[in-house]
Design a protein around this nucleic acid. Sequence first.
RNA 1: GGGGAGAUACCGAAGCGGUCAAACGGGGCAGACUGUAAAUCUGUUGGCUCAGCCUUCGUAGGUUCGAAUCCUGCUCUCCCCA
Length: 303
Amino acid sequence: MSKHLIVIAGPTGIGKTLTGIKTARHFNTEIVSSDSRQLFKELRIGTAVPSREELSAAKHHFIHSHSIFDNYNASQYEKEAIGLLKQLFEKHDIVLMVGGSMLYIDAVCKGIDQMPDADPELRKNLKNQLETEGLENLRRQLKKLDPKYYSEVDLKNPARIIHALEISLMTGKPYSSFRSNPQKQRPFSIHKIALNCERQELHRRINQRVDKMVATGLEQEARRYYKQKHLNALNTVGYREFFAYFDGEISKEKAIELIKRNSRRYARKQLTWFRKDTETNWFEPNQADEIISFIENKTAENE
RNA sequence: GGGGAGAUACCGAAGCGGUCAAACGGGGCAGACUGUAAAUCUGUUGGCUCAGCCUUCGUAGGUUCGAAUCCUGCUCUCCCCA
């Protein structure tokens, strides 16, 4: 019997959780979340984690499984998720992966290259250099250390340049030498589904959900972690805007408005990513039945 | 009823005779992406048969070689006085 990973992706607020649960129940299987923020146990309202009822309706993994104080990243997720999937496939022929974190999904479906974690001190140092000496200075260093990558990167993107420098400096080898564009073979077949609907409707859902988050105490949740605002886990839509409000930079109304806007933009970015993946099969959020029969067909084909 | 200010592209807002399809901001749209990824960055935003052409700056006329810019009527909005 062959094994199948069903990926259910889509933009934020589209209804992945509900569709995932319905599907999981139908196939009597479990859900591996691919959401880079719902895995932090401290975060609840702003990340729209599944409710207690939803969690008990289907077994979920990678929900509230880690802490914002851990330094988590896509590579760790790859390792842990692949390990978990191995276990789950001992019990199930079909397993669901539900979530919208594009890079995390790709880490599992395609794999990412092995390289060291960035040293926090070094990163701080490089960020500092960016502030004081500017991007041009970092570019010059990269040109020297890794001319190949220098010729490929977006030279206006500090995050990319800093990361390449980190790896190059830490290992003494050019960053590009680690990049092999892997297509790792997995011991299961992968079927990708993405949810989408009319843009106007998506925006309506997103705005509405943000209002609900605010009504159920997002401000207090953000306040609780205000001191930890420098943590990467909290560089997250819904929290960063409230931090700016706490810092007195913007009004509360402005913060809420920005949360909505940034969520809309995030959704658009997700759609761009999923659209680029030609393996994506598109459905509407209310097409759970169609999705189920799609999965039945797909998994039967490979018997 | 009297006086004043104003109507600019999706929204806000510059422009005040040619170099204006119209600065700038917001919003939107599109794209890039392998360890920060809910991150970081880029492009685009009147229409088209697109290095050119066509229709736009409340509306109808007028002045001018030439108008978003000047003049007149009309409509609407805001403010002040009654």
